[in-house]
């Protein structure tokens, strides 16, 4: 593996890096990290196993095995990326391999939430723009500078206005994507809600 993994903390505003293109629709989280690697009580060793079975099948020709992609950090994918299992192990494997941001046509809901929760911004672009990037990556290296403040991606030849959910963008800029402390700030409101909910009262036998 590359340099030792340090998880992102605090505000996330800029990501600069080389793009790695992975072509295919409906790439599910079982493919990103097969279930046998879920037998663990921490995420530490997942980076090396990302796309394990797909990589073995392609015998060194998978984008994650190509020498030129070794230090890539911006993953470019097609539609419904990360569908299937809710395993956070999938984005945890990607971030440990070195992925810092993902640009795609669309993302599965749970995968998207998991990425936000661990500090990987996921941006969308229309199919045409994604194909433009992927075609470009086929022939030469693409280094993108992503600025979350104005959701732009810039490079020598290609420039894009990226789309990202406004709530996600704000959370990255403020550092609140790591939600626990923000949620705990409303401790009193949580207690009030607990006391108001009808079913807490008629399920007294639960405790």
């Amino acid at each position: 593996m590359k340099s030792e993994f340090t998880p992102p903390i605090g505000k996330i505003t800029n990501m600069n890096g080389k793009c790695i293109s992975l072509i295919g629709n409906d790439i599910d989280t079982d493919r990103i990290i097969p279930a046998r690697f879920l037998k663990c009580v921490n995420f530490d060793s997942l980076g090396e196993s990302v796309f394990e079975d797909d990589r073995k099948t392609l015998k060194g020709k998978h984008p994650f095995d190509l020498e030129e992609n070794k230090y890539a950090s911006i993953l470019v994918v097609n539609s419904n990326f990360g569908c299937g299992s809710s395993r956070e192990h999938a984005p945890q494997a990607l971030i440990r391999w070195g992925i810092k941001a993902i640009i795609g046509e669309s993302f599965a809901d749970i995968f998207y939430s998991n990425c936000i929760a661990i500090g990987i911004p996921c941006f969308t672009l229309p199919k045409k723009s994604i194909e433009e990037i992927q075609n470009y990556c086929d022939n030469q290296s693409l280094f993108l500078e992503i600025d979350l403040k104005n959701s732009s991606a810039q490079s020598k030849d290609l420039n894009f206005n990226l789309e990202i959910k406004e709530s996600s963008r704000k959370m990255f800029l403020s550092g609140e994507w790591d939600a626990t402390s923000t949620l705990l700030d409303n401790n009193n409101l949580i207690e009030n809600k607990f006391n108001q909910l009808p079913y807490i009262k008629f399920n007294t036998n639960i405790s």
Partner: peptide
């Protein structure tokens, strides 16, 4: 009812709430 990832499991354990759209 919906599925969540491990960081959200942490949030539910700690706060019994989730940040969601």
């Amino acid at each position: 009812a919906f599925g969540i990832g491990t960081s959200q499991v942490r949030d539910v354990l700690a706060t019994q709430t989730l940040a969601m759209n």
